[in-house]
């Protein structure tokens, strides 16, 4: 199913504009992620698509050619996975998964077959008769997903489905979720504030800020060609190199950096993996922090830009705190973005 939103906005009764008029199309079978900091309107947008929130007049929501703008949530045939999972405590795992089918008045034998199929897909066969109180966080998440998918919804909506889990579990389940969603072969929208999550799961990511979509594209596009300072910072935590530009040179507190093109009024950003500590470097800074992360070190360097510059160092040893180091940055790796396009 193709989802199409035009001019969709939401103003709350207290006058807060949670969502500015938005256009959005999600193609059949596509997994789209809405990514943004809390309060950016991503959950509001998801709830509008679900029918749990009424958009402002003038908004239009289409599921294929079906205008669902005025449809109640129970008639929209959407599957939703809530942040807290919202499993029904008065029902077993099977009862939860079968609830949507019961509402559709599916014949019992067909419903049972469907439940078994979904249980198997989500590897829940052994837990079918358990009470939901006796499940772990990861199991609950799978039950919530199974329950949402069982009635064959037109679209699957997931509201931060991983945020209720322990950090150690989150990464494993993130990959598991990506595999499952593709197995379902369904149009899905996935809300998250974690860029790594969005990148790992989605085919396409829409970055949201202050109630609008600031940029959307594949994870690669967003990472390599951010169009604003906000996206650069939010996706892949780019760091600002603040200095004065003149022609192809950028003069920083810690030295002069070459630029790939003539730049005057723009902002220059760099990502940690492109900041190299090397003796031949043209920039000089002081080591502030070193963090050992197993495969690499994260080194915080001050004195180059006004903020601390982070460098990823793959090696056996790290410089000591307080050492003076030389840093080189490949001009091609720099992100040059328009100034003031987006305030943060």
């Amino acid at each position: 199913m193709t989802l199409h939103l035009t001019n969709t906005a939401k103003t709350f009764s207290d006058g807060t504009r949670a969502l500015l008029p938005i256009e959005l199309t999600v193609k059949t079978g596509e997994i789209m992620s809405l990514l943004g900091p809390s309060g950016c309107g991503k959950t509001t947008l998801l709830r509008i698509i679900a029918g749990l929130e009424t958009p402002d007049t003038g908004s239009q929501i289409f599921f294929d050619d079906d205008d669902v703008t005025l449809q109640q949530v129970e008639d929209r045939k959407v599957g939703m996975v809530f942040q807290s999972y919202a499993l029904f405590p008065n029902m077993s795992v099977r009862g939860n998964i079968g609830y949507g089918l019961k509402m559709q008045k599916l014949a019992p034998d067909k419903a049972n077959a469907r439940i078994n199929e979904v249980l198997e897909m989500c590897q829940l066969e052994k837990l079918a008769l358990r009470s939901i109180k006796a499940l772990s966080g990861g199991q609950r998440q799978r039950v919530a997903l199974a329950r949402a998918i069982a009635p064959r919804p037109r679209i699957l909506l997931l509201d931060e489905p991983l945020s209720a889990l322990d950090a150690s579990l989150r990464e494993v389940l993130r990959d598991e979720l990506a595999v499952l969603l593709r197995k379902f072969n369904i149009t899905a929208i996935f809300v998250t504030h974690d860029q790594a999550e969005a990148m790992a799961i989605a085919d396409r990511v829409a970055v949201m800020d202050h109630g609008t979509i600031v940029q959307s594209g594949t994870p690669e596009e967003l990472y390599r060609n951010p169009q604003s300072m906000f996206v650069a910072k939010f996706v892949g935590s780019a760091m600002l190199l603040d200095g004065s530009c003149k022609g192809k040179k950028l003069t920083l507190a810690g030295g002069v950096q070459d630029l790939p093109k003539n730049t005057t009024d723009e902002l220059v950003f760099v990502r940690a993996e492109d900041v190299h500590i090397s003796k031949k470097g043209s920039l000089t800074g002081t080591v502030q922090t070193t963090t050992f992360l197993g495969t690499h070190y994260r080194i915080g360097i001050s004195g180059i830009a006004s903020g601390v510059l982070t460098s990823i160092l793959a090696g056996q040893t790290a410089p000591n705190i307080g050492d003076t180091v030389k840093v080189s940055i490949n001009p091609e790796a720099l992100l040059i973005l328009p100034n003031g396009a987006h305030k943060e």
């Binding site: 679900a50 029918g51 749990l52 109640q72 949530v73 129970e74 008639d75 929209r76 045939k77 959407v78 599957g79 939703m80 809530f82 807290s84 919202a86 499993l87 029904f88 405590p89 609830y99 949507g100 509402m103 559709q104 329950r147 949402a148 009635p151």
Partner: peptide
């Protein structure tokens, strides 16, 4: 309990 969300979940399932 989170009654509101439980009801929303039921509604999304067609109740």
């Amino acid at each position: 309990m989170d009654l509101k969300t439980l009801e929303e979940a039921a509604a999304s399932l067609g109740a």
